[in-house]
């Protein structure tokens, strides 16, 4: 952290760290959790709830037009067809809603209330995504913000901004890059980033 905007004073930092440590200790002492609980949950989350799930969904949509239609129509049901890890329906995985980019349409996901981010398919968001400046500007002037982060869209491309909430956790099926007709699923998967599934980047580039 070198920027003033994101600078964390040490005392405040220490205070939050101490609060978390104290809370975990008290919960263990009280028998609510054990000393291994948090590590187990984190380990499962970090190994299974990753953008790999989202990449699989996107590549399936790129290679199966009928699935592409279903995943937008009824996202949880379509995802259930894929063999993804248990827990996809748990915290933040409920109410998933896919929106598809296409010719003339670009989707951008934000969350103005808090970060209702669909972790199970996308992993954790980039930290700047949670910043109120990013969220409010993306809602107000999405084309300008997208231009600043390197997503230059044609003038006539419509930009739809979707606000994630407790009821709808949006993610984007980006457009399949051209020149990928003979790509294997694995090669296609490498083109799909977390950023492209939030709409702050395009899939690719094709190298």
């Amino acid at each position: 952290m070198t920027s003033g905007q994101f600078f964390y004073p040490n005392d405040r930092e220490a205070s939050s760290a101490a609060k978390v440590a104290a809370l975990e200790s008290l919960l263990i002492e009280k028998g609510v959790i054990t000393g291994q609980t948090v590590d187990k949950v984190l380990s499962y989350f970090e190994s299974e709830m990753t953008p790999l799930n989202g990449r699989k969904i996107v590549v399936k949509a790129w290679t199966d037009p009928e699935f592409a239609a279903r995943v937008v129509d009824d996202t949880p049901a379509a995802i259930a067809e894929l063999n993804l890890p248990e827990g996809m329906a748990g915290a933040e995985g409920e109410h998933l809603q896919a929106v598809a980019n296409g010719p003339g349409v670009h989707n951008l996901i934000i969350c103005t209330l808090c970060s209702c981010f669909p972790w199970p398919v996308l992993g954790l968001p980039p930290y700047w995504y949670k910043d109120p400046v990013f969220r409010s500007r993306a809602a107000r002037e999405p084309r300008k913000v997208l231009g600043e982060i390197g997503v230059d869209l044609p003038e006539d491309t419509e930009i739809k901004v979707w606000d994630s909430s407790g009821h709808s956790r949006w993610f984007v099926i980006p457009e399949r890059p051209s020149g990928t007709d003979d790509f294997t699923d694995e090669m296609l998967m490498n083109l799909v980033t977390t950023e492209s599934m939030i709409g702050v980047a395009l899939a690719g580039p094709v190298s």
């Binding site: 809370l23 590590d39 748990g90 915290a91």
Partner: peptide, 11 residues
């Protein structure tokens, strides 16, 4: 840890 603790208590 804070993230994992919130998630664990819910799970």
């Amino acid at each position: 840890r804070a993230f994992g603790l919130a998630l664990a208590l819910s799970e």
